[in-house]
Amino acid sequence: MKKTLARWAQDIWYKDQFIGVWLCPLGFLFCDLVRFRSFLYRLGVLKKQSVPVPVIVVGNITVGGTGKTPFVIWLALLLKEAGYKPGIISRGYGGLSESWPQRVDQNSIAEQVGDEALLLAKQTACPVVVGPVRVDAANLLLAQTDCNVIVSDDGLQHYALARDIEIAVIDGERRFGNGYCLPAGPLREPIDRLQGVDFRIVNGEETEDNEHCMQLIGDSAINLATGQQKSLKDFRAVECHALAGIGNPERFFNLLASVGVSCTTTSFPDHYKFERRDIEFNDDKPVLMTEKDAVKCAAFADAQYWYVPVKAVLEQGFSEQLLNLLKAKNNG
């Protein structure tokens, strides 16, 4: 049922303009409510809370995947290389823990803390705290670690936490769909919200003015059971299955196709909670999946299953711009 609803919504937002038009009144109402909430924060009726270290918020204004998680990993590693001690806070979407906020480490269980949070902890080796209230997550992070800069993953709409730098990640292929707010379109906030962010990062495709290009690079596969690593090109000689439970599964499938890997594809809703039967295809063909999906499948996967890690590569000069702005905010 969830898979059907997700596909129906995607078709409306990115393909079928007609139904989206009929839902426009609801989209306009959603936009007005979003703008009014933002106005209340600017007015001080709703209070923002500050923390004693710089906060960099990374998010998007659309529902679904834009490549935000690989960018957060890239950003955390950049900050570490520059001498900072970054910590990461996130919603922990899909996590079933009964207590929040909660620390995440490489041994945490995705079902409890969420797939993206576990992936962030594994890839960055930074302290990670998850919870629905970003301020509480930030305070726990500061109480238990010596981090001196916080990266808030998917925190663009969480105005209660004051921030120093805002970064919006945009899907370069799908952009903003039909341009309508929920439920008529994929927008969480009106497009003019982007005028207030410090940086706009576009995942693939061509960029427009005031946007920075990011490419996701993946050329190898790692076995879930054995840890063996192979070049993706080695899979061109065999028929494969490919599955993805991310915001834009087609981006992963296109990556495989771009290196000549022929796959039968199966897509699932973002943050899908996989079970063994979901990834069984009753044959011996290799099964390729994203790294985000792999953290949820590792417990029941065997040597037939492989994940494809991707790395964000930013255009030349962006790192310096970001670090200079952070330095200026620190000295301000």
Rank of each mutant, 00 (worst) to 15 (best):
W8D: 01
K15D: 13
D16N: 15
I19N: 04
I19D: 10
G20F: 12
G27N: 04
F36S: 08
L40Y: 03
L40H: 04
Y41V: 00
K48P: 00
V53Q: 04
V53Y: 08
V55Y: 15
I56Q: 04
G59R: 11
I61S: 04
G64I: 05
K68A: 15
T69W: 08
V72G: 03
S90Q: 07
Y93Q: 01
R103D: 06
N107M: 07
E111T: 12
G114S: 08
D115K: 06
Q123D: 10
L140Q: 12
I150T: 13
R163F: 05
V169S: 09
V169K: 07
Y180E: 14
C181E: 04
P183E: 07
G185Y: 09
R188H: 05
R200H: 02
L216D: 13
I217P: 01
S220L: 02
L224C: 14
A225T: 01
L232K: 04
L243F: 15
A244T: 12
F252S: 02
T265K: 07
H271S: 03
E275F: 10
L288I: 05
E291P: 01
C297P: 14
A303Y: 06
W306P: 07
G317M: 13
S319T: 09
L323G: 00
L325F: 05
L326Q: 03
G332A: 09
